[in-house]
Amino acid sequence: MNKENKIKTSNISNAGKKDWPLWEIFIRSKQGLDHKHAGSLHAADAQMAIENARDVYTRRMEGVSIWVVESKYIHASSPEESASLYDPANDKAYRHPTFYELPEEVKYM
């Protein structure tokens, strides 16, 4: 039984090596709005990624435009650096425009 399980696991990891690359999908839901990250999926190339994104993420009329980018091209900030990157913003309240009094005439702020 254990042996069988092992064989199965190794098959899965071998199959994993031949997997299609991962793509990050960005969908714009309405004209004029930004593309927003919708999720990720596997595809053999960009064309297939767009089609898969259409099928996976726009089935309920969520989208008018799709961007795809291979996940390996996304560079992310490291969670370990979050203290140095973001904490300093916390104690500089003067950077926030909350001290201005809005004139009555200004709406929709």
């Binding site: 299609w20 999926l41 596997h42 898969n52 099928d55």
Partner: peptide, 10 residues
């Protein structure tokens, strides 16, 4: 694959 499963089901 999952994505094509969804495509053919669509």
């Amino acid at each position: 694959v999952l994505e094509q499963d969804i495509a053919i089901s669509n």
